[in-house]
């Protein structure tokens, strides 16, 4: 980018003699060549950035562990609540059965919530959600 700026800086004076105009033509040619080279670079950089942004195996693993913990937490909390109700009400298997299923549903809800795209916060709804804020 810096090379391009110095290139465009040379044709600042608006008065052009014939000698200067042939010189600017030469500069124009050089600038066009540079522009082409830069464009090539940009394509390569874009491809590189695209490749970098693709989730690698480690990011996939982190994402999987995150979703797994969301799901397991739902089931565990459901089971704990069910067991607690059974313990105090003396309805031994039934509270556990019912709340284990509710916990399962809550785990699925957790996973769905964390993978679904987030709506913009209501206070500044005009702003679109810029990026997925969760890794």
């Amino acid at each position: 980018m810096a090379e391009k700026d110095t290139g465009s800086g040379t044709d600042q004076p608006s008065l052009r003699t014939s000698a200067e105009s042939s010189e600017t033509a030469a500069w124009d040619a050089r600038r066009a060549a540079l522009e082409a080279k830069l464009a090539q670079h940009r394509v390569r950089n874009a491809a590189e950035a695209e490749r970098e942004s693709r989730p690698g195996t480690m990011q996939g693993l982190a994402e999987g562990l995150k979703l797994g913990s969301e799901f397991v937490a739902g089931v565990v909390v459901g089971a704990a609540i069910g067991y607690g109700i059974d313990y105090f009400a003396g309805t031994m298997p039934f509270g556990l059965i019912v709340f284990l299923m509710i916990g399962f549903a809550a785990g699925v809800r957790n996973v769905l919530r964390s993978v679904s795209p987030k709506p913009a916060p209501s206070a500044n709804a005009a702003e679109p959600p810029l990026k997925d804020s969760e890794s």
Binding site: L65, K66, S69, E70, V72, A73, G74, V76, V77, G78, I81, F99, I102, G103, A105, A106, G107, R109, N110, R113
Partner: peptide
């Protein structure tokens, strides 16, 4: 009633998943 129960359990599971994730990692 079912959805509310699921939402409450889902809410209560948040501190569990939040703490277990950091600790386990």
């Amino acid at each position: 009633p079912l959805v509310v129960a699921i939402e409450i359990v889902s809410f209560l599971s948040r501190p569990v998943s939040l703490s277990v994730r950091l600790f386990a990692n």
